[in-house]
């Protein structure tokens, strides 16, 4: 995962450089920003407030770049939207039909990439990094918004599709005991669908990066290991990673693919076929 403090720094730096672009001391800018954006985290922010001054002085532009998608996704991931208490009660087929009638479909997505990193989940645990969710890719493959956006808010003025965390927030709410929490909503939806389609990861680290321990002492390899020795050493502990890998596109990708550039159908190499290390 992307460590929190650097992410903040980068975000802040971007904002500082692009929006304000002034000679006001950074500490003051930062404080103004925190107040202005109504952001919490005082202790962590203050602790990190000093060093960036020197850092930015050296080489700001070179270190600071990150994809605009990612920054946007990070920002969106931190938002907690108001809880939708009531949903319209309709069957799946009715909903699919209605979406079709209204002409809503894959083309209407507003975000092609999402970072699933909600503070709702972080409140109780933080063992795994956020999931990078290719929204448009999933939409393209399934061609069915109602698979995930299975209900809409009862409020007519609300958007037809809302984010998962609008309805699914904390687990075991006393006022909605039947409503599953956000973490379970994600996992149930992803895993069940991946299993049903026999496609996509179903284990933890297929989607998440784990906050990994230091591997210096864990890995036991000779001085000049063979590639296959390295792989088997990894598999010694990460057996399920091997299995997950075998169901990933990285392994299965071996021919004409709808996902290659310009949908070119001339790809004849793949990890599982012609690569050197296909242990």
């Amino acid at each position: 995962m992307i460590p929190k403090v650097p992410a903040w720094n980068r975000l802040r730096r971007r904002l500082t450089l692009t929006n304000l672009n002034s000679a006001v001391p950074l500490g003051l800018v930062f404080m103004a920003l925190t107040v202005g954006m109504g952001i919490q985290l005082p202790a962590r922010a203050m602790a990190a407030a000093a060093p960036p001054e020197a850092e930015t002085a050296k080489a700001p532009e070179a270190a600071a770049w990150s994809a605009p998608d990612q920054v946007d996704a990070q920002k969106r991931a931190q938002e907690v939207v108001p809880f939708v208490a009531e949903v319209r009660d309709e069957c799946k087929l009715c909903r699919q039909q209605r979406l079709r009638d209204e002409g809503l479909g894959v083309k209407d997505q507003s975000h092609s990439y999402l970072l699933l990193d909600s503070p709702i989940i972080k409140r109780t645990e933080d063992r795994y990094g956020p999931v990078r969710f290719m929204h448009s890719k999933h939409a393209t493959i399934t061609q069915d918004c109602a698979l995930c956006h299975h209900f809409r808010p009862a409020d007519e003025s609300a958007s037809e599709t809302v984010r998962c965390s609008a309805c699914h927030q904390d687990a075991f709410r006393q006022d909605h005991p039947e409503r599953i929490g956000l973490k379970a909503a994600y996992h149930q939806q992803c895993i069940a669908c991946h299993e049903e389609m026999a496609k996509g990861p179903v284990g933890c680290i297929g989607c998440h990066q784990k906050n990994a321990p230091d591997h210096k002492d864990l890995v036991q390899l000779p001085a000049n290991p063979e590639p296959s020795q390295v792989t088997s050493e990894c598999l010694r502990c990460h057996e399920s990673a091997g299995k997950d890998m075998l169901s990933s596109a990285h392994w299965l990708w071996k021919g004409p693919s709808p996902f290659t550039l310009d949908h070119r159908k001339a790809v004849h190499h793949g990890k599982a076929t012609t690569a050197v290390n296909n242990f």
């Binding site: 109780t124 645990e125 687990a171 075991f172 006393q174 005991p177 599953i180 929490g181 973490k183 379970a184 996992h187 149930q188 895993i191 933890c204």
Partner: peptide, 14 residues
């Protein structure tokens, strides 16, 4: 266990 369960196989309540 109820808190960590990723799929809410465990539902906690009255």
């Amino acid at each position: 266990c109820a808190e960590i369960c990723p799929v809410e196989a465990i539902t906690f309540g009255r």
